[in-house]
Design a protein around this nucleic acid. Sequence first.
DNA 1: CTCCATAAACTAGGGGTTCTAGGTTTTCAC
DNA 2: GTGAAAACCTAGAACCCCTAGTTTATGGAG
Lengths: 187, 187
Amino acid sequence: MARAGITPERLTVAAADLADEVGFEAISLAALARGLGVKDASLYSHVAGLGDLRTRVTVLALAELADLLADAVAGLAGKDALKAFATTYRHYALAHPGRYTAMQQELDPATLAASAAPRHGELVRAVLRGYGLADPDETDAARLVLSTVYGFLGLETSGGFSHHPRDLGTSFERSLDALDHALRSWA
Amino acid sequence: MARAGITPERLTVAAADLADEVGFEAISLAALARGLGVKDASLYSHVAGLGDLRTRVTVLALAELADLLADAVAGLAGKDALKAFATTYRHYALAHPGRYTAMQQELDPATLAASAAPRHGELVRAVLRGYGLADPDETDAARLVLSTVYGFLGLETSGGFSHHPRDLGTSFERSLDALDHALRSWA
DNA sequence: CTCCATAAACTAGGGGTTCTAGGTTTTCAC
DNA sequence: GTGAAAACCTAGAACCCCTAGTTTATGGAG
């Protein structure tokens, strides 16, 4: 029988694409194998199991988003950097709902440390560099910024804001304005 | 055979408790039936299926938290109300991780509207009443506050902040201070 | 107190999933 | 070519959800 040319990387991308279509919780090795014209047991040559594949998807999503964020923020500072960071984050979350919910998956500390998650933190710190905060304050501010962006998109994608007609994009903009104001006068 | 005295409510509470122990994603009708000394098929007399049970757990969690928030905020205004709201939210999330992740479940619009989720929004609005914001601004500010609290706890519980030694409780406090400052000078 | 209707439990089984164990075939390096 | 490793297969165990039909306990009506 002809080989399907499966690699762990291609399998992970296929899983991520499937997650964007049907939801991260709904991905299964069986469905993936069907899509690739292969028996499900064959996938164990490339991946240690469903759990392994799921963590690979979240690691992939973290890395993809970190790359996009780094590009978006490069050369910017202050409010411009903050807005570029946040809108890039938002576009990714809305365009890739499965990958985004994958990013909310808990990872064990080792793979978390080896993933692009620390880069996210560093990027937020780079954005905050323009606001001139000393070290414990910078950590607190970075957590505030990441929490707000992450939380807004979590609520937006899960429908938590849907009961009010106010446009979500402008609410997001106003929240960033308020965040910028809070950062400039942190003390 | 003796009856087990199961009701939809007791079953939902048992599922929520199980979720707090093993994680919301890991709850199963089979495990629940074993715990109650009953065959899994018997649970279909009380609940329409696993999906139904899961939405019942999120509705329960939303209602529990809304009650706690209402008590905590009663009689307070301004920064005191904001801190009471946020710390109550945080205590609930940390004490009941399964229930909290249940709250991140997407609900269909009808059950969402019938749940306590709108009450959460109203409670945030009540907190903001002390800041004197006009209507489109109040909506934006409410979304900002809810996003920040919700996002911080999502990141905290999923380990997203664990790579830095800074105490999370004080980071949370500082974020609330910054939020209060942003609300007072909303512009 | 008996009887009956209803609700709560049961048994049996289909279909789905993950994952393991072991066998076969393809591919590639030598 | 040949041998070895990797990719794929079949077969099957162990779960899980859910349906269908059956039995049993409960509580109210007569």
